[in-house]
């Protein structure tokens, strides 16, 4: 018989949950789906350009930038696939009836699941960046060092997006509701609000979608800054570029804030 002394510590249990959740994700259709999507984007970008008679950029940073522009969408699809239903499904699909009576704190379980989502999405992104680096080396003869920085920001965006997905998943009743909320907020609400703020000459620095711009901007050397273009006598447009530090803080802020609310909501949620 196992006794209360045998029960692993919270940190050990986080590692156990993370390990088995990763195993679960790896065997899911969602993982096959995201790897198929990664392959599809890579194949299309690499094959269609020559077919249309367009040349690849000879500059490695510019070459990599074409591929990296798809990373934001990959992160969001990953967050929807591996994080949006992570908590709501425990109630909707009744797996919580099996897991919650085990001697494990809800927050421990949540953190383990969250880390597993990060690892799985990170693995898909890692494969994507490695293939892009190999293609860049093969086609342009070089790989920009900034690709590592770009991958770092992609992971930061994953950390924030997954946390927001966990927040929706902890509050909303069904997987479908959390997926719809995630898609609406990231693809519509943040885009519309960000665009309206820019038009009003307000820096949307606090928007995660704006901070995620650092994924592409970080490939440029030197790192760009916010610039205003005069359009006629009384009109100008401003391209708000998040600073590297600013983007990091905003994405971490969204991640921590969302996770704290998600933990509180998940602990209060009942069968």
């Amino acid at each position: 018989m196992t006794t209360r002394e045998d029960t692993p510590s919270d940190i050990q249990q986080v590692c156990i949950v993370t390990r088995y959740e990763i195993e679960k994700h790896m065997q899911s259709r969602a993982f096959i789906g995201i790897m198929a999507l990664v392959s599809l984007i890579l194949v299309l970008l690499t094959v269609i350009r020559p077919i249309l008679g367009l040349d690849f950029s000879s500059d490695s940073a510019s070459f990599v930038s074409d591929y990296v522009s798809w990373v934001e969408i990959l992160v969001l699809i990953g967050a929807v696939a591996f994080a949006s239903g992570a908590l709501s499904s425990e109630f909707e699909k009744r797996t919580g009836l099996l897991m919650f009576p085990q001697p494990i704190k809800r927050e421990t379980y949540l953190i383990g699941k969250y880390l597993s989502a990060l690892v799985v999405i990170g693995a898909a992104l890692g494969v994507y960046y490695i293939v892009v680096a190999v293609l860049s080396l093969a086609i342009t003869g070089g790989v920009p060092a900034t690709i590592i920085l770009s991958f770092g920001f992609a992971m930061l965006y994953t950390i924030a997006a997954c946390a927001v997905a966990f927040l929706f998943s902890s509050i909303l009743k069904t997987n479908t509701a959390s997926i719809v909320a995630m898609v609406l907020v990231f693809m519509m609400v943040f885009s519309i609000v960000g665009a309206l703020l820019s038009m009003s000459n307000v820096d949307p620095f606090f928007m995660p979608s704006n901070a995620a711009g650092a994924i592409s901007y970080s490939l440029e050397d030197p790192y760009p800054v916010t610039s205003t273009t005069q359009m006629g006598q009384n009109m100008s447009t401003t391209n708000y570029v998040p600073s590297e530090l600013g983007a990091t803080l905003v994405l971490l802020g969204w991640a921590i804030g969302s996770l704290v609310v998600a933990v509180v909501a998940f602990k209060r949620r009942q069968f």
Partner: peptide, 18 residues
């Protein structure tokens, strides 16, 4: 709950597995 449930096995309703 963590300590209290450490020596308790439970089947509540019909739980689902992954």
């Amino acid at each position: 709950p963590k300590t209290a449930l450490s020596e308790v096995g439970a089947v509540v309703e019909t739980p689902e597995f992954y």
